[in-house]
């Protein structure tokens, strides 16, 4: 009798262990309750702030509200389609091309940073390409999308270049010296704004957060259990599958893929990143990702690498401290810089 009781007890324990083991994977993944907040509709995309920090909901909501304020501020400053009461933004500077426009000091700081990035990338990431980008934008949103005429693109290209942008810091003004020139922050704005939001959170000591602005992710620290964030990069040929995964913490990861934003004319796909050298969509790669601390730098470099051949791009990345990149070609071949060795796994 005693034996049976003992056996029954032992069996019960075994059964319990089995059940725990079975549900283990679920338990660990469920350990961290993730808070998420969605931002609409800044930078023509959707943003999400997620906390893996095990912080209280009120605390998270407060942080989300503060991030929202930062994103809204930058969205308005960098908007090229709408103007807002009581402020001059990029749209104002473009509309008043030829005149000096008094703007928020933040906008001056942004344009200065954009100029640095333009120089660093030898003009491959250039916010002064507005005149050309406008033609592509109009073509892509037309009822029947079309490819802009080559002579129109060439003509527009005459009104591009950072030498047409006059920054007067002491007067706090921006001036486009060419009336047909315009600024377009699309290649840099999201990353720059995400970095400003991250700055604010860092100052408050926040860690364990991820801020995703339309494919532009900034991680603050690692998760509450000290594990890194796992990022899957899609296979451009089959975006339903992944090409590789990265384990990342306390850095930014920005990916540009030709499968993300594009339009189709006569069955041919035209992606949204325009190469200043050909004035046509860049076609060296199908996907480029940049991993480094500063999200503005990552955003700028992703666009630049997309428009450069591999050798030039690799040389650029290698010349920078703490910056890594992944290139994916149309034939699905993948190359990446050495810094990613320990965090990358190809699927």
């Amino acid at each position: 009798m005693k034996n049976i009781i003992r056996r029954a007890a032992a069996s019960a324990v075994l059964l319990l262990m089995l059940v725990v083991l079975c549900s283990c994977s679920k338990l660990t993944s469920g350990l961290i309750k993730v808070h998420t907040h969605t931002f609409y509709p800044y930078f023509d995309t959707v943003g999400t702030l997620s906390s893996y920090a095990l912080d209280k909901e009120e605390e998270f909501n407060q942080n989300a509200a503060e991030v929202n304020t930062v994103l809204e501020h930058w969205h308005r400053l960098l908007d090229i389609y709408n103007e807002y009461e009581g402020m001059s933004n990029l749209c104002t500077v473009n509309r008043l091309a030829g005149q000096a426009v008094k703007v928020d000091p933040d906008l001056i700081a942004f344009v200065k940073y954009a100029k640095d990035m333009c120089i660093l990338t030898k003009g491959e990431m250039d916010i002064s390409l507005g005149a050309v980008l406008r033609l592509w934008h109009e073509a892509s949103i037309a009822e029947k999308p079309y490819v802009p005429a080559e002579e129109d693109l060439r003509e527009a290209a005459k009104h591009t270049g950072f030498d047409l942008v006059e920054i007067d810091e002491s007067a706090g003004t921006l001036r486009l010296t060419d009336e047909l020139a315009s600024l377009d922050a699309g290649a840099l704005g999201k990353g720059y704004a995400a970095e400003r939001a991250a700055e604010l959170l860092s100052k408050k000591g926040v860690t364990g957060y991820g801020l995703n602005l339309g494919g532009n992710i900034r991680f603050l620290g690692s998760k509450a259990d000290e594990s890194p964030f796992t990022v899957g990069i899609r296979d451009p040929l089959n975006p339903e599958e992944l090409a590789l995964t990265l384990n990342l913490a306390d850095c930014s990861c920005v990916t540009s893929g030709d499968y993300e934003r594009y339009f189709t004319v006569d069955g041919r796909r035209y992606c949204h990143i325009i190469d200043k050298d050909t004035l046509m969509p860049a076609s060296y790669f199908t996907s480029v990702s940049v991993i480094c601390k500063d999200s503005g730098l990552a955003d700028a470099l992703t666009t630049a690498l997309f428009c450069m051949n591999f050798e030039d791009g690799f040389a650029l990345i290698s010349s920078l401290e703490g910056v890594d990149a992944v290139w994916i070609w149309i034939d699905s071949s993948i190359r990446y810089t050495m810094g990613l060795d320990s965090v990358i796994s190809l699927v």
């Binding site: 994977s25 993944s29 997620s50 893996y52 991820g210 995703n212 494919g215 992710i217 964030f229 796992t230 990022v231 899957g232 990069i233 899609r234 992944l242 995964t245 990861c253 990916t255 893929g257 990702s289």
Partner: peptide, 8 residues
């Protein structure tokens, strides 16, 4: 059951 936090 995915172990990814983000997919780009």
């Amino acid at each position: 059951d995915d172990s990814y936090d983000y997919v780009l």
